[in-house]
Computed example of a mutant assay.
Amino acid sequence: MPFHADRQLDYGCQKLYKGGYLFLQSIYYGLGLDRVCRKIRDRHKFQYDLNAILSDLVYTRILEPGSKRASYRAAMDYLEKPSYEEHDVYRALDVLASECDFIQSEAYKNSNFQVDRNDGVLYYDPKIPIRLYTGLSY
């Protein structure tokens, strides 16, 4: 991307993009959540991109916690703009809620490829949305 110190910036054009979510992408795709979304999409036969919605929700909830609407607006400042509409987020939430157990079990299985863990003891905490925890060994 060429930069010119003597050229004035165009008024009204976005100059600043948020890229903090890029380090989370490797974790998200390492857990295979894109494949999980593909399986869910094949079961439910909807048209919107569930993977894009879930990934943006995860990124924004970690980096800039807020409402669903605030998450969509925060994702508009990312390097990669959302490929879905705001109303698709609300449609996807029902599907994500119904498939919550499936998503958690697949993420737990796929996490074996990301980190070594001592799975001799499995913890359950009903107060935290992600229910499966294990003792991680580093």
Rank of each mutant, 00 (worst) to 15 (best):
M1T: 07
P2Q: 07
F3L: 14
H4D: 15
A5T: 10
R7E: 13
R7D: 06
R7A: 12
Q8C: 06
Q8F: 10
D10M: 10
D10E: 15
Y11N: 09
G12P: 01
K15N: 11
L16H: 12
Y21S: 02
Y21N: 01
F23A: 15
L24C: 09
Q25W: 08
I27T: 12
Y28V: 07
Y29M: 00
Y29I: 04
G30I: 01
G32R: 03
L33H: 00
R35C: 08
C37Y: 01
C37W: 05
C37H: 03
R38H: 05
R41G: 03
D42A: 14
R43W: 07
F46R: 06
F46E: 03
F46A: 05
F46K: 09
Y48M: 06
Y48T: 04
D49K: 08
D49S: 09
A52H: 12
I53W: 03
L54Q: 04
S55P: 00
L57D: 02
V58M: 07
V58N: 00
V58D: 01
Y59P: 01
T60W: 00
I62A: 04
E64A: 14
E64G: 08
G66R: 10
K68A: 00
K68L: 15
K68D: 04
A70C: 06
S71A: 15
Y72S: 02
A74S: 11
M76Q: 15
D77Y: 08
D77V: 00
Y78A: 09
S83Y: 05
Y84A: 04
E86P: 00
D88R: 05
V89N: 02
V89Y: 02
V89G: 03
Y90F: 12
R91L: 14
R91S: 13
R91K: 14
A92Q: 05
D94C: 06
D94W: 11
D94M: 09
V95N: 00
L96K: 03
L96Q: 04
C100K: 12
D101K: 11
I103R: 03
E106Q: 13
E106W: 01
Y108F: 15
K109R: 14
N110G: 02
N110M: 08
N110D: 11
N112Q: 13
N112I: 03
Q114A: 07
Q114K: 04
V115D: 01
D116K: 07
D116Y: 05
R117K: 11
R117C: 08
R117P: 02
N118R: 10
D119F: 07
D119V: 12
G120E: 12
V121C: 07
L122E: 06
Y123I: 14
K127C: 04
I128C: 06
I130Q: 11
T134Q: 08
L136T: 12
L136V: 15
S137Y: 08
